[in-house]
Every structure is written in structure tokens, then in C-alpha cells.
Design a binder for these strands. Structure first.
Lengths: 355, 355
DNA sequence: GTGAAAGCGCTAACAA
DNA sequence: TTGTTAGCGCTTTCAC
């Protein structure tokens, strides 16, 4: 059976390319037209008799023809492909960003190469080389923390690059970041609007830019509300529940206790909430708590559920996609853009007393 | 200076391809050799004078030449590219898998297209079309839960596909999964080896295959240890901390209390641990607890830290990469392969009494 | 309305 | 040792 069909096989022999995927040449031959005609029919262009067009399309469908995008790319000098390099090994923060970005780009028929560099410059360089070889039309760089990093490069001049949740040390680059200061102002503003006067701030390590910015927001919101910054109420440390528990316990062993805590992330907030509950302090009755990140798995599991600041990472990712598309279309974009966070109110700041 | 070099510019005019990236033609022209010679030099092949080779390489380096991988692919009929379609929007479980896979493939110089289908068959189809157009050499399909799914297709015949943390309803397909039964046996075996006799199982919804398999492991480990399955000790429900708290409280209101709990995931385990601590039951003194997933953020934050079952997702991802590479090389692989889990012991099952 | 051919960037077979 | 050329799959211009 198999051996009785040499002629057909023969026509595909000098190539047998790409696992035998049919080419436009196959379509043309079977439909009995020239390659040019087949191309015109498939691309819905040029003048062509209805009959021929349909014949070609039918054949194409029947043999499962699908244009080879690599060949097309070669011709149009655009790969319709972009790369994304992450140093977060695509963790909790990068995920939503990358997902939204991929969605946006998929809408335009652009495919995304995913590369994980895990903070290793050598790996990053290697990935970049590969991507440049693949002639990506653009690049997105993302990271675990939004601190400054050396810019990507040197690379094919004019390759559009967007840094998101990551900041290049290069004024000509475009960086998209959440507005940490504004997020903190939102949190503290919410608490002061609820009548809280003694607001503490438990947060992560100060070498994170986010920690410094959120503190700045904390301070400016306090002064805007006419509140004093109590000595010992600002507590940088680590991003863990244990730290939240520890500081909360300590603050409530003081004479001057806070009536609200703004936490640098949801884990700290959860730790604080746990410690307070166990000490018999009512949340939000005695103390209101606001977290940061709005990480559902933490915020919802906390008792009571956490009011938190959402960095709107999906929106950030989508905008990164928009910006990259614009840059690919030729626009020059640069600067550090900070996008607003939002406040998600739950029971840890308002509602039935609790504890 | 710049304007004094018009001829060079001119040579690149009919094309200006790919953002002006230099081509091998540019290298050849500047090095004053033929294209064929340049190619030989760059590919370290054929016989060529040392001198010429070096000259070519130097020019290539100077003008920043990087071979166009699309053109190479076209020629060699391999794209050195694979696709990965996820229905987990790359969440907690898929991510370690994808990361390890990407690492493995990067070692071979293969790039990975990332596609998120989010359980929408239309989006999946669309992504698949795009990937096939890009002539990927292979495909990996991954999902949020390891339940059976309709196989991908129809697609270019012979495209290697590996399902990981996902199972195709097709005996000819290769699926790589964690061994849930074995994981449960490990957990319950650990508890019974510690002398626990009354082991309860709080877990997620029964429509998850993982729940059914883990229960099976639970039962077989009980009987292997000569322990009875106490009525009401098997508690399917939902994957939440609240469920863990609820059931734990309930079990300890009974006359016949368990002396160990094997939980279907770490969230349930954490809920149980919290409830018990608040009831004054000592963990692991009175009750030992084992979770499942070894999700660090949960397992480590629990008081006491959770003993848990690790599905070794990174190893699974790496193996998926190995398998895909083999299939690309021509081997046919199929069947449902389950890979062992491991037990990670922490203080919730052994150690200082606690509570 | 249709076909022929050049060219996208590269490799490999064959000439010189 | 080096150059020439065909061809990978596709689009597009230009003849017919």
C-alpha cells in the first residue's frame, strides 16, 4: 500500500520540509494553477475569477494547508513575535502582568517567547541572543522587584523595549510601574477617613524601592490628615507573616497602642491580624488593618478578610502590550510611568467589629 | 562622517529588512568574500584559509551580525521552537512546570512560545493555529487540574505533543502526572509510622481526579498499616482554609477524635492547624498534620510549619522537556506516566509537641 | 484573469 | 581555497 504511491512522495522529496506540512506549491499543483494565482486566492487579493479562487481555497482546506509563518516573516521582515524576559521566574507578581500582556498581543496575532533569566546576567544575555536571532519585533522585561536594573543591551538598534514592574537605569527607556506612593496614600487616607488617628506601618526591607516609596506615601498621607507620626510606629523588616505577628504583638504591649495598621504586604497584614486575634484585640473594632498586594489567597483567608491595595497588575500588563505595539508601529516612548493602585475594602478595616 | 558613506546605505535599500539588521550578504561584501565563503566561515565548516575565516568573523563581530533564525529555520525545516498551551493561566501549579521545561529547552537552544487558553476551546484553537503557522517542532499542554481533557487536534500529523499535569483522553498521547496515590500513601505511611492510629482525611471536591486518587492512597495505606477507616474521618469538601478549620473543629467535637489528619492540600492543612491551636489541641502532640502540595508560602507560614507532600513539579517539567526532545528526535512515546511525590517533613508531624 | 520570476536570508552542493 | 547557484515557502511585480 505504502510503496504503491511513489510519485506523490516524490514531489515532496526535495524538502520533506516541516514534517510534510503542505506548501502553497502543493496547493497550486493540485488546484492546477500557478503559485502566484494560489497566493492571490489565499490572500483574498488581486483580480481573480470567483471560480479559481474557490477552487484554490477548497484544495487548501482539503489538504490542510496553513501558510508557513516563517517564510512570511522572512518576506515581510517582521516576525510577529515578541520576547519577554523575566527575572521573577514568573512568580506571583509577574504572572498577572505576563498573562494580560500575552492576551493583548494575541489579539494582534503576535506570539510571545517566554524566557526566564532568574537574575542571572549570563542567562539573560543568552536568551537575548536567541531572541534577536529569531528577529523578535519587540521585547518586554519584567522582574521580581521594581528596583532599577541595568538596561538590556547592547542590542539590535531600535528594538522596542518595555520594562514593566522593572525599571531600567536609562532615561530613554520606558518603564511601567505601579504607583507605590499613591497606593500608600490610598491606604492611609482610607484609615484616617475612618477616624483612625494612630496609624502604624509595618513593612518589608528598606532596600526595596517599594518600601521606601510606600513609606513616603504613608508619611504624606499622615501629614495631609493632620496626624502625627508616632515614634516606633514605622517598622521596616521582612515580608513575612512572622514579622507581622512579631511587630503587632510588640506594638500592643506598649502604652500607646495604634488604632490602625497599614502593612507593606498582605503576608505581614495576615500575621498582624492573627496575632491581634490571639491577643483578644478586635479587628477592625480596636484596630483597622490594611494590606498591600491584594493577593487573594492571603487577603481572603485572613480573619477577617483583608482590606488591601491592588496594584492592578493586569492593567499594567495590558498597557505594556499597548505601549509595545505603539513602539513597534514606530512611536518613541520613554520615561517612568506610574499607574494608580486601587483600594479593595474588606472587613479588616470596616464592618462588624470582629475579633 | 555619517554622510560620507552613501554607497553602504544604498546596498541595503531594497530590503531594509528587520530593522536594518545586517545580513550575511553584508558580512560577505564588507569582508570581500562570497556569500558561500562567509557562510562557511561563520558555520565553522568546510576548508577555508585561516586568514579568510578570521577576516569574516571579525567583520561579522564588528557589524553585529547575527544569523537570521527564521531564514535558517526555513532552510533546515525545523524552527527550534515549541509551544506551550496552558489552561491554568500559568498559576501556582503550572508555573514550576513551565519554568523547568523552559530551562531544559533553553539548554538545547529551543525557544518557547507561551499561550494561555484559560479553558476556552476557541482561544485554544486560535493559539494552536498560530503555533502551527509558526511551525513549532513540538507542543506541551498543561492545565490547572490533572483531569482528562479532549486531545489537542486535529493538527499537523506527527507533531509531538506532551501533556503534563494534564491528561489527554487519547491512548496514543503521552501524559506526565504526579503520582497522587503514591503521595497519599507516603503521607499516611509517615503518620502511621509515627504510631498514629486514627487518621482522618480532609480534602477537596470529589470531582477532582486528584481527590479520588489521594483518597485511594489514603485507604490503601490505612489497610496496609492495619488501621481501620473510621466512619466520618473522610471529609471531601473544598480547597480552602475555612473548610480545614470547619472540619477540624467538628472532628474534635466528637467523642472519637483523630490523632492525625492528612489534608488534601496545604490550605486545608493550615486551616486545620489554626483551628486546633485555637482550641488548645497540640500539634503535633495531640494531632499530627500532613498537607499536600508543599506550597512554601502556606507550609512555612503555618504554625507549626507543615509537613507536606511535594509533587516535584520541577522534575515533572524537566522530564516533559526531555520527552518532548525525544519525540522531536523521532521516538514515539505514549501512555500515562505518573511520577513519585516526596515527603517533606516539618514540625506539624514530628517534633516538639507544640500547640 | 493567470503565469513567470525575483527576492526575503540562509545553507549546501557543486564548480572553478 | 573560494565562488556560484539552487532552493527553503511565500509575496509581489510585471508580463502575457
Amino acid at each position: 500500500m505504502q510503496d504503491s504511491d511513489p510519485p506523490v512522495v516524490e514531489t515532496r522529496v526535495p524538502g520533506a520540509a516541516f514534517g510534510g506540512a503542505p506548501t502553497i506549491r502543493d496547493v497550486a499543483r493540485i488546484a492546477n494553477v500557478s503559485i502566484g494565482t494560489a497566493s492571490k486566492a489565499l490572500n483574498a487579493g488581486g483580480r481573480l475569477s470567483q471560480e479559481t479562487r474557490e477552487k484554490v481555497l477548497r484544495v487548501a482546506r482539503e489538504i490542510g494547508y496553513r501558510p508557513n509563518d516563517l517564510a512570511q516573516s522572512l518576506h515581510r521582515a517582521k516576525s510577529r513575535t515578541i520576547g519577554i524576559i523575566s527575572n521573577d521566574s514568573f512568580g506571583r507578581f509577574t504572572f498577572p502582568i505576563v498573562e494580560a500582556l500575552e492576551n493583548r498581543l494575541a489579539e494582534e496575532g503576535i506570539a510571545v517567547f517566554m524566557c526566564n533569566a532568574t537574575d542571572d546576567p549570563a542567562r539573560e544575555r543568552q536568551h537575548l541572543d536567541q531572541l534577536l536571532g529569531k528577529r523578535i519585533d519587540g521585547l518586554v522585561v519584567t522582574a521580581r522587584r521594581a528596583d532599577k536594573r541595568p538596561p538590556i543591551g547592547p542590542l539590535a538598534h531600535g528594538l522596542p523595549v518595555v520594562y514593566v514592574f522593572s525599571q531600567a537605569d536609562d532615561p530613554a527607556a520606558l518603564s511601567l510601574l505601579p504607583d507605590d506612593v499613591g497606593g500608600a496614600v490610598l491606604a492611609v487616607g482610607h484609615l484616617s477617613a475612618l477616624g483612625r488617628k494612630r496609624i502604624a506601618h509595618i513593612t518589608g526591607p528598606e532596600h526595596f524601592e517599594a518600601v521606601r516609596l510606600r513609606r513616603q506615601g504613608y508619611r504624606s498621607a499622615l501629614s495631609r490628615a493632620g496626624l502625627a507620626e508616632v515614634d516606633g510606629f514605622y517598622r521596616p523588616g521582612v515580608w513575612s507573616e512572622a514579622w507581622g505577628r512579631e511587630v503587632a504583638a510588640e506594638l500592643f504591649a506598649r502604652r500607646e497602642k495604634p488604632d490602625a495598621i497599614f502593612c507593606g504586604n498582605d503576608q505581614i497584614a495576615r500575621g498582624a491580624a492573627d496575632a491581634l486575634r490571639e491577643m483578644g484585640v478586635a479587628v477592625p473594632g480596636d484596630v483597622a488593618i490594611v494590606g498591600f498586594d491584594n493577593w487573594d489567597v492571603m487577603a481572603l483567608a485572613t480573619r477577617p478578610p483583608l482590606t488591601s491595595i491592588d496594584m492592578n497588575l493586569k492593567a499594567l500588563g495590558r498597557e505594556a502590550g499597548d505601549s509595545l505595539l505603539e513602539m513597534i508601529a514606530g512611536r518613541k516612548l520613554s520615561g517612568v510611568e506610574r499607574r494608580p493602585c486601587s483600594l479593595v475594602v474588606r472587613a479588616s478595616s470596616v464592618g462588624g467589629g470582629g475579633g
